[in-house]
Design a protein around this nucleic acid. Structure first.
Length: 566
RNA sequence: UGGGGAUUGGUGUAACGGUAGCACGACUGACUCUGGAUCAGUUAGUGAAAGUUCGAAUCUUUCAUCCCCAGCCA
């Protein structure tokens, strides 16, 4: 089968550069996270792109193809080692390896400083004594040009002296900055003498107290790319306006010309994917933490049970362009189901147990029924599940007065208990308030294992069950979208995106019953609870008396969906 | 408003002057010991208007709409 899938514009560019030998057969990308938060699904797209491209074009890059992991750690007031560790863990989990190519912008501080001096000497940078407020006021606005700083024309000697003293720590935070001397009237605000260095007497996770001046993103990023001889510097659309500045520094410095190309950022419906907002959710306790399974962070998706291969498949499938991208959550769920359907073992679990007594089944008898672990994968083998007189079935699998298309159990109706027997409901037991508390059924011994009886009769429905005496208690956490609205940022004026939080995003089910084969599962284990969905053993299992499961994603449910129609 | 980007079914993404295709979703049906999976099918689109051309999603012009930029964040 020949794949004629066309290349996206970035891969097409990479291929063209390779074919024209632009970089002498070398291909180097980089993934440049700032260690100030956890990676999310949006980063996954960038990771898959930056790490994926060198893998894909390896054969066309005889001089080597690789992706560097580079931490953009230029702001010590926001960055922490905890985030560095979490980011590395998440990238590895996603399935990528940077080998020895782990770098930090902070490794280049000395080089960056020397280059700043070079720019000062050439009259292309100056120390400005204006404070942040004054700089803002003199920057102009979208329609008005800015006005030059009164310090713009300081002598080279004075600039050199002041900048050296900035580094020595002679001045307090915010008192001075180093600025590039470009064009205060540029229609691109980024070119209006952008700040290159600011004074920050802060302890850096890696350089400690060695520095009290730190480079800004615009001055650090392109030069870091250049130092690493990055051939293709891929970033998101909002940096398009920064490209002229990216190019300006490289040109003035006469260093290796890395090239920046922008692509569209991934947005997902019913969630937010900006670090700032995710941080708010965590810090204001709207969720339990960065890895709360409702979050779109990679650590949360991992805990939720999303396989890395599903995320990679998703990122690959959503594509790249320069249009704004709001992907329906169902796209992600599709890839999760596709992967889990192939790999997850089936098991029976009852979330909302309804007691069933098989009146004609011997009270003391227990039969071990054979069950297939994964019909999609014969290698997964088989297991046995105990069958006995008293069972639990799902409460919603019984209806006293069923509508036409309800194929499950009802008074007088026969259904198949999966891998068990065919049973017929003979009696409905209610409490004083009229609530159904128990069902009496009879079974047909000729249907052992769920097989069809010799008389050729049929049943419409097959339902899941567990043996009451053998079942294990479980807590099951059912998740819904974190936000009720497709676009959480769609708020009436005066409203707040947090108003769109879905109050029903988490429902905890206590008293679920699962089959005994689950007895010794470990955190992270993923299963399909037949007819219900995919579930993953949560780490909280280790500190709980009951097993704790997260619902990763439901199974597609055409019955449930049809019931929701008006 | 100045600048930078972008407009193709509900959502994404192809087609690079020559039959608007693919995926997800939705809807049918078949099959089924999961109302899952699988299989088959249906649905639905070039923002608008002019122009160039035998022929326009594609080229030109005008208009409209949306996104980004006024951090000593990245």
């Amino acid at each position: 089968m020949e794949s004629t899938r066309t290349l996206d514009f970035i891969r097409a560019m990479v291929l063209e550069d390779l074919q024209s030998n632009r970089h002498s057969g070398r291909l180097t990308t980089r993934f440049p996270p700032e260690p100030n938060g956890y990676l999310h699904i949006g980063h996954a797209k960038s990771i898959c792109l930056n790490f994926g491209i060198p893998q894909e074009f390896k054969d066309q890059a005889p001089a080597g193809a690789r992706c560097n992991l580079r931490f953009d750690d230029t702001n010590p007031t926001k960055e922490e080692q905890e985030y560095i560790d979490a980011i590395k863990r998440d990238i590895r989990w996603l399935g990528f390896d940077w080998g020895k190519d782990e770098y930090y912008a902070s490794d280049y501080f000395e080089q960056l400083y020397e280059w700043a001096i070079k720019l000062i000497k050439e009259g292309k940078a100056y120390v400005c004594d204006l404070n942040a407020e004054q700089i803002r006021q003199t920057r102009g606005n979208l329609t008005q040009p800015g006005t030059p700083s009164p310090y713009r024309d300081r002598s080279v000697e004075e600039n050199l002296d002041l900048f050296a003293r900035m580094r020595k720590g002679e001045f307090p935070d915010g008192s001075r900055v180093l600025r590039a001397k470009i064009d205060m009237a540029s229609p691109n605000l980024n070119m209006r003498d952008p700040v290159m260095y600011r004074i920050l007497h802060a302890k850096h996770p890696r350089t400690g107290g060695a520095w009290c001046i730190y480079p800004m993103y615009d001055y650090a990023h392109g030069q870091s790319d250049s130092i690493e001889r990055i051939t293709h510097s891929l970033c998101t659309l909002e940096f398009e306006d920064h490209r002229p500045l990216y190019d300006w520094f490289i040109e003035q410095l006469g260093i290796f010309p890395s090239r920046q190309t922008e692509f569209n950022r991934l947005n997902l419906t019913h969630t937010v994917v900006t670090k700032r907002k995710l941080r708010t959710l965590v810090e204001d306790k709207h969720v339990a933490g960065w890895d709360d399974p409702r979050m779109p962070t990679l650590s949360a998706l991992r805990r939720r049970g999303y396989p890395p291969a599903a995320i990679r498949g998703f990122c690959d499938a959503v594509g790249l362009s320069k249009r704004e991208q709001l992907i329906d959550l169902s796209r992600l769920e599709y890839h999760v189901r596709e992967e889990l359907n192939r790999t997850a073992n089936r098991v029976m679990a009852v979330l909302d147990p309804l007691r069933v007594v098989i009146t004609n089944y011997p009270a003391e008898q227990v039969e071990e029924m054979e069950a297939v672990n994964n019909p999609e994968d014969p290698e997964a083998g088989k297991r046995t599940v105990p069958f006995s007189q008293v069972l639990y079935i799902e409460r919603e699998d019984f209806m006293e007065n069923p509508p036409g298309k309800f194929f499950r159990l009802a008074p007088g109706r026969e259904v198949r208990l999966r891998y068990g027997y065919w049973v017929t409901c003979t009696n409905v037991i209610k409490d004083d308030d009229g609530n159904i508390v128990e069902l009496h059924c009879t079974y047909d011994p000729q249907t052992r294992g769920g097989d069809s009886p010799p008389d050729g009769r049929k049943v419409k429905g097959t339902i899941h069950w567990v043996s009451a005496a053998h079942a294990i208690d479980a807590e099951v956490r059912l998740y819904d979208t974190l936000f009720a609205k497709e676009d959480p940022n769609d708020v009436p004026e005066g409203g707040d995106w947090l108003d769109n939080l879905n109050p029903e995003s988490l429902k905890v089910v206590h008293g679920a019953k699962v089959e005994p084969s689950l007895k010794n599962v470990e955190a992270g284990g993923t299963f399909q609870f037949e007819r219900l969905g995919y579930f993953c053993v949560d780490v909280d299992t280790e500190k709980s008396t009951a097993l704790v499961f997260n619902r990763t994603v439901t199974l597609k449910d055409s019955w449930g969906k049809s019931q929701k129609q008006p």
